Simulated scan of single mutants.
Amino acid sequence: MKRNSLLAALSAATVMTLGGVGYAAHKRGRNPYYRGPKSDHFDGLRFHGPDQPADKTLADLRNWKKLRGIESPPRVTWPGDAPSPFRDLPPERHAGLRVTLIGHASYLFQVAGRNILVDPVYARRASPVRFAGPKRVNPPGIAYGDLPPIDAVLITHNHYDHLDGPTVARLWQDHQPLILAPLGNDTILRAYDDTMHVETRDWGEVLDLGGGLNIHLTPANHWSARGLNDKRMALWGSFVLTTPVGVVYHSGDTAFRGGGIFRDARARFGPPRLATLPIGAYEPRWFMRDQHMDPDEAVAAGLLLGADRMIGHHWGTFQLTDEGIEQPVEALAVACAEQGLDPERFQAFRPGQVWEA
């Protein structure tokens, strides 16, 4: 079977959200993306978190399907079309803080006069191939042609629902933005346009954009892969923006795992003015808890951060896991009530919805 056919045949959540299943080391024992010194989270071949769980296996994937409706809830089929009532036409610049959810985990941050895209995905499918994989059920909340001049593009990790290579290459050609990604992702991005300039950073490192705007790469409880043999060979992370108008925390994909990364971020940067946190792609929990938060954990994360406001994303655009399309919104309301959080402080956004301060 050809490589593309094999990728398409594998589970959508495995290949498109999780990037592959537990294949052992790269065939040549060499990292194709990054060569650098060993560290407390890089062993010379693969990156890992402080409590990195065991990689999921093909047997785990089979059990996911086998246990649906028996030991875990059945898969809820999404509608083929679920348009958002919102569409944003952003201003060219914004002096304060203006945030638009483009869809899934893609954002436009307009902050202190700069325009920053995070994980921009304009593809019709979150997939390595065009003919298979999770398909968008709603259009981007900002049409590509309505984007303002883009100064920077931030990539949290290399899964296909976050790193859309053709879109980043198009942005590079149209806007020449600064592109920032965790270690190793520059190699992946330049495969889509070898003229692309990509800055990379390790956890704990910062990029100074000038004017008091700094972008810090911080740990996330997740992992990476683009195919079958490159698991955890490129780094992943969260971003903290320290700006003249306040701190913004963007988690990327992450599990909760005791909440240590959120406590550490608050201790280092202070309570953020805004935290953008994932609330979807979490069922079944036995399979997903090691890499994705559910709404209850997202509320706990926001409280640990001490965020003034929270926006929930990573739901309602691509069906990657088993929960229904509106289930994260309903579960978020319950979690806010149970944890004593005013629901106005934590809202599940739809594509095109805007928060402005």
Rank of each mutant, 00 (worst) to 15 (best):
Y23H: 05
Y23M: 06
Y23P: 00
A24I: 09
A25W: 10
A25T: 10
A25S: 12
H26P: 11
H26A: 10
K27N: 02
R28L: 13
N31M: 02
P32W: 04
Y34K: 03
R35L: 12
R35A: 14
R35V: 14
P37R: 15
P37A: 14
K38E: 14
K38N: 05
K38R: 15
S39M: 03
S39Y: 10
S39Q: 07
D40L: 12
H41R: 13
H41K: 03
F42P: 02
D43C: 12
D43N: 15
D43Y: 13
G44R: 06
G44I: 08
L45G: 04
L45P: 04
L45H: 05
R46C: 06
R46I: 00
F47S: 04
F47M: 01
H48S: 12
H48V: 03
G49N: 09
D51F: 05
D51G: 03
D51I: 01
D51C: 04
Q52S: 13
A54D: 15
A54H: 12
A54S: 13
D55M: 11
K56Y: 15
K56W: 15
T57L: 09
L58M: 13
L58T: 08
A59D: 00
A59C: 00
A59E: 00
D60G: 05
D60E: 03
D60R: 08
D60L: 05
D60F: 02
D60I: 03
L61W: 07
L61Q: 07
L61D: 06
N63Y: 03
N63I: 08
K65N: 04
K65I: 01
K65Y: 06
K66H: 04
L67M: 10
L67C: 04
L67K: 02
